[in-house]
């Protein structure tokens, strides 16, 4: 996996202070630090490069021009920017409609489905992306943040506004749903 740049962290505070003072270099640094990650997150959610590009730019614009709101919320900038991206994604779904929002969390396993037969190593990246986009909103979010964005469960918990335990449980269910979805695709 290619790295997405420096991991999201709390050491953005000095940069944010410089941005507030009008330092364009600090703006550039934050943009470089987060744009690829946000683009990747949004693309994984939407599956369309054009939409991902627009939403990533929109997210960064909102994030870097509304730092006064960020200060009031008292959370890490990384968590805040992911929340903006998430909200932008939801808005996009509302405006354009989501292709599929079928929850596979409780979907019954196919009679012939034997998840143990699933050869995950042979799955293509596209298969995985497509199957993830069939999961529920929260399941998508947790898998993308944990495995594509390489964030810790604690960081994901902050972004999603949940406890770490809830995120871990959600992750477990999301992986189960994904496995079933992938197996269903393999059978079909």
């Amino acid at each position: 996996m290619r790295p997405l740049g420096k991991a999201a962290s709390d050491d953005d505070r000095p940069l944010i202070e410089r941005v507030r003072k009008g330092d364009q270099d600090a703006v550039r640094t934050l943009y470089e630090r987060y744009f690829d990650r946000i683009y990747n997150y949004v693309y994984a959610r939407l599956g369309r490069a054009e939409d991902a590009e627009d939403l990533a730019i929109d997210t960064m614009t909102r994030g870097l021009t509304r730092l006064d709101l960020f200060q009031d919320q008292g959370v890490a900038f990384s968590s805040w920017i992911y929340r903006i991206a998430h909200n932008a994604t939801i808005d996009h779904y509302r405006r354009h409609g989501k292709v599929s929002l079928v929850s596979l969390e409780h979907a019954p396993a196919l009679e012939s489905a034997d998840p143990s037969e699933l050869a995950v190593e042979q799955l293509s990246n596209e298969d995985l992306h497509t199957a993830i986009r069939d999961l529920t909103d929260e399941q998508q979010q947790v898998l993308i943040l944990r495995f594509f964005q390489d964030l810790t469960a604690a960081q994901v918990a902050l972004i999603m506004g949940k406890s770490v335990g809830a995120v871990q449980a959600l992750q477990h269910r999301a992986l189960g749903s994904l496995e079933r979805a992938l197996h269903g695709r393999a059978v079909n």
């Binding site: 683009y39 990747n40 590009e53 990533a56 730019i57 995985l128």
Partner: peptide, 25 residues
Amino acid sequence: RLERLAERLRAVDPYVPPPGAKIRG
């Protein structure tokens, strides 16, 4: 099985924005 699936997800190449998109952004 889920651990193997998680490992496979970690190995997925990330979507990288085209240079033009980053400059425009």
